[in-house]
């Protein structure tokens, strides 16, 4: 797959990338097509949710009272922290600090697992109260959007785990960082989508 020359330099730092005359592409072009496709799917869900909310404002207002904004906030903090740790890990690997980069990825996985735990707790709470996919349009959309995102988090964690394993084996030493950057960008995309979903589902009614 086409890639920029700057990705071929293993120890290229951000400053050298910034001053590069070539347009810089973090990660692989194929991964960016995938990320943009995923963002489009989420965009359809978000528009669908916003339009349906205009059609059934009372149902949406009532449905939202059963959600926990604090749980949503904890999840947002977990994903932002995880995303930050991945960005720091990329910086560390650019400075040939393999072990530190792997440790940061481990931290990112740990904070991501907080999201999984809190979201599972939320699902359990709602199901215990008798809410499910077929309760009404609000809960159908709520479960669809959040479960779809939940699956992306799981896939992202598998990618991060693989990146951490490869980092400990020194797979990125003296080689292109394109694979690492692609995985990192995917994870940032997962974080980005949650940042839009969180206020839409939990804050605004």
């Amino acid at each position: 797959m086409a890639n920029t020359g700057s990705n071929q330099v293993p120890t290229a730092d951000v400053a050298s990338v910034a001053s590069s005359p070539r347009p810089y592409l973090p990660g692989d072009l194929a991964m960016w097509f995938f990320i943009l496709a995923e963002l489009t799917v989420f965009a359809i869900f978000i528009i669908g949710f916003a339009v349906t909310r205009q059609l059934y404002p009372d149902m949406f207002q009532q449905g939202q009272t059963y959600l926990h904004p604090v749980a949503g906030g904890i999840n947002t903090i977990a994903l932002i922290s995880s995303s930050c740790l991945v960005a720091l890990s990329l910086n560390a690997i650019k400075h040939s600090r393999q072990n530190y980069a792997a440790a940061l990825l481990g931290g990112a996985l740990l904070t991501a697992s907080v999201y999984l735990a809190v979201k599972s707790w939320e699902y359990n709470e709602l199901i215990q109260q008798g809410f499910g996919l077929s309760t009404n349009t609000y809960f159908t959309l709520y479960f669809f959007i959040t479960a779809f995102h939940f699956m992306h988090v799981i896939l992202g964690m598998i990618i991060l785990g693989s990146m951490a394993f490869k980092t400990t084996k020194g797979a990125y030493q003296g080689k292109s960082l394109s694979g690492f950057e692609s995985g990192a960008c995917y994870w940032h995309m997962v974080d980005l989508v949650w940042i839009i979903i969180f206020p839409l589902l939990y804050v605004i009614n």
Partner: peptide
């Protein structure tokens, strides 16, 4: 996030 974490500030 896109500027600082994804490093798109200097991207294509």
């Amino acid at each position: 996030i896109i500027d600082h974490f994804m490093e798109l500030r200097h991207a294509h």
